[in-house]
Design a protein around this nucleic acid. Structure first.
Lengths: 203, 203
DNA sequence: CCATTTATTTAGTGATCGATACAGAAATAA
DNA sequence: TTATTTCTGTATCGATCACTAAATAAATGG
């Protein structure tokens, strides 16, 4: 089956990539349609034909972010031999990915739509859900470590998971404010200093 | 000298307080003039006569936030007997103040204007400066603790200060996402578990 | 009283927001 | 060729943005 009609004159994937970087740098409400169309090199009708709406474009941008930048941060998490190495690697990768010279600083999912009250826009709720998933992922890794005997059953899985995600999210703000890669890595190291105390058996 | 002209028909301080809570809940760009005037119970010309512009109103709101909510968080910091108690108290107060039932969740200075590229708007730069001042304040307290012999000279003052501020800032996002007060307090406790390791003499 | 001063209400300003109507262009199908 | 389909550029749409001009209201000074 061959496609009918006039062929699209721009690279959809490339246009999406440019939109993602704009949203990443300036957040959802911080980017206007005219900025998007200018950066993507297309006119509004082409954007809407290809991506439906600003909302839908943002969702696709977030999905692309997760499969590229997010993967750079989380790929080592599941493969790490121990929970400690998984968390340490996550923080280290976050520090590095939040401070690249050729990319916006910080995390799109953390900084992309912090506006508004709780449960305001759909975009906001989607990002909050993704942020929650990070905590859940750490919790599950910690529970696996308990099941495998690496960590004692007495640890507070939820608190530890929330603690390390809180640091990761705070690093996004630090990165946006100009903290150097070295400083972000130092923060990650500081966070891991708590590991032994947090995971020791306390009966 | 008595004031001339028609007297103002609204309470300026009360109107400012309402504006502060709106900005706190929804950030600078997230609040529109019509929302402000509605909540403050006045018309746009009255707002501009009393506060000059949305920018200036936001600055006054931030100043009010610092002298009220900010004071709730930081008042115990300088009076604490030790650096450890100062930092622990700061995190505990942050957890509590970011999760009050009658107030917006999180911190206005952290969440008030995260939009935009680095050094974009004046509002953004002002808040970034205030965020930096938090790090500086912790640094100075740690240096004082060194001078007083509480902590060894070998500690990395900047890294430790940035680490604890990073947690405080991350707690704003957690609070905005709905984390309970208990969970925020647990995060603060987790952060203090690192204290001994971070401040031990390592020569 | 009247002049002056300041605040208020009404009713807008131009600019920009996200999103589209419409006509023409460029492909396939028959 | 002609019909159909889909994309593209121009030129907007109504809504909302931050903000204000103009007339009126309410106080004081003389």
């Amino acid at each position: 089956m061959v496609e009918r009609g006039r062929p699209r004159s721009f690279d959809r994937a490339d246009a999406l990539r440019r939109a993602m970087e704009l949203f990443w740098a300036k957040s959802y409400e911080g980017v206007s349609l005219s900025e998007l169309t200018t950066s993507m090199g297309i006119n509004p009708p082409s954007l809407y034909a290809a991506f439906t709406s600003k909302d839908a474009l943002f969702r696709e941008a977030v999905a692309l972010y997760r499969s590229t930048e997010g993967d750079r941060t989380w790929s080592g998490f599941e493969t790490a031999a121990t929970a400690r190495e998984a968390v340490a690697g996550l923080l280290k990768a976050s520090a590095e990915n939040y401070s690249r010279d050729d990319k916006p600083r910080g995390c799109l999912i953390v900084l992309g739509a912090l506006h508004c009250d709780l449960s305001n826009t759909a975009v906001n709720r989607d990002l909050a859900d993704l942020r929650m998933q990070c905590v859940k992922q750490l919790q599950e890794r910690l529970e696996r470590a308990i099941a495998e005997g690496e960590l004692p059953q007495t640890i507070d899985v939820q608190a530890i998971a929330t603690f390390y995600v809180t640091i990761q999210q705070g690093m996004s703000i630090q990165a946006r404010d100009g903290a150097s890669r070295e400083m972000l890595l130092a923060v990650a190291d500081c966070a891991m200093v708590a590991w032994n105390g947090l995971t020791v058996s306390q009966n």
